[in-house]
């Protein structure tokens, strides 16, 4: 029996697993399109975590207190960890880490458009936590039930850690909103700048989304872009009232009939421009990542050389250092 003969049966078995809401695991047969869609989505997500360290890393040395600095450091370290969980999940699909890193560095794979906006003030650290991580959580919680096992398991770890990210951001804004008039203005200005880019994080409207239909049928995605965006708006409105800050949308009103807030859509043409590379920080982000990768080359080479020497038994310092 050739592979082509076996394929209808393999596909039927795959479809049965999906229909039963069971998980697909790395060594299972899967349609090539399922595999490539997952590689694209998981890689995009991993790259977002890695690039996402930059806008916040920008503020570590300028955090207003030791407490805030320690928290921000821990958060940025988490983003690196999230990137690594996701790279590990992507690698189970047969692509190598080196290839994934290379595709980010040369622009063949994307990262979330949100990280191409600058973080101009300390209040941006609060707003990124509250809105950007808040939007990420709304996107990510349903992915904990994604049909691909390793992806779903990585998302469970990530979601547990993200809620700290969102709360620390909310706390920063809550504190600023009760501070001096200048601190309050700084908080409001940050919310004004980040609101629409955060809404755009959910992607194009359903009618224009090229991937949604197939991804939902395969259980890679569980809800449409517009549904998740609405859920996010409905969560943020009462939270903004607690903060005492306003969301920059005069059309924002409760719609009794729909049971949801009506709101102004983000500028999807702007989203398209930023995705295509024409955002405020696209060039800076990638250049920074390329430099960091090149600057770290000697460390990777030294570690490999040390391992090779130890394996050959020719070094004096072959005993591995004890792990703390």
């Amino acid at each position: 029996m050739t592979l082509a003969d076996a394929e209808p049966e393999l596909l039927a078995s795959f479809e049965r697993t999906i229909a039963a809401n069971d998980r697909i695991e790395p060594r299972d047969w899967m349609p090539e399109k399922y595999r490539s869609t997952l590689v694209r989505q998981i890689a995009q997500h991993a790259h977002s975590e890695i690039i996402g360290m930059q806008p916040e890393g920008n503020w570590i040395t300028r955090a207003p207190s030791l407490r805030r600095k320690a928290i921000l450091l821990a958060k940025v370290q988490d983003e690196a960890g999230h990137g690594l969980y996701l790279y590990a999940a992507a690698e189970t699909l047969g692509i190598t880490r080196d290839e994934l890193v290379q595709r980010l560095l040369d622009g063949r794979q994307k990262y979330s458009s949100i990280f191409n906006y600058p973080t101009l003030s300390w209040a941006d650290m609060g707003t990124v936590g509250w809105l950007v991580d808040g939007a990420a959580i709304v996107n990510q919680v349903p992915l904990c039930r994604s049909s691909y096992g390793p992806y779903a398991r990585a998302m469970i770890r990530i979601c547990k850690e993200e809620s700290f990210h969102q709360r620390q951001g909310f706390e920063i804004l809550y504190t600023l909103a009760r501070g001096t008039p200048a601190q309050r203005d700084m908080a409001q200005d940050a919310v004004n700048r980040w609101w629409y880019p955060s809404l755009a994080m959910f992607g194009p409207p359903d009618a224009q989304s090229t991937h949604t239909g197939q991804s939902m049928a395969w259980g890679i995605k569980r809800f449409s872009n517009d549904d998740l965006r609405q859920r996010f708006v409905d969560m943020c409105v009462p939270q903004s009232a607690v903060l005492g800050l306003t969301l920059p949308d005069e059309a924002l009103t409760w719609n009794e009939e729909r049971g949801h807030y009506d709101f102004t859509r983000p500028d999807f043409e702007e989203l398209g421009r930023v995705i295509r590379g024409d955002g405020p920080c696209n060039a800076e982000r990638i250049e920074r990542r390329q430099h960091a990768h090149a600057d770290g080359a000697w460390v990777r080479e030294a570690a490999l050389a040390h391992a090779a020497k130890a394996a050959a038994g020719t070094g004096d310092d072959v005993e591995p250092a004890p792990v703390r």
Binding site: G81, L84, Y85, A88, A89, E91, R97, P150, R153, A154, A303, L304, H306, A307, A308, A310, A311, P320, A321, V323
Partner: peptide
Amino acid sequence: VGSVHAPDAAMALRNARDV
């Protein structure tokens, strides 16, 4: 829980601890 990259076992343990 997942996987890590490392040139040797000692580094793999340290990376696993951090990740």
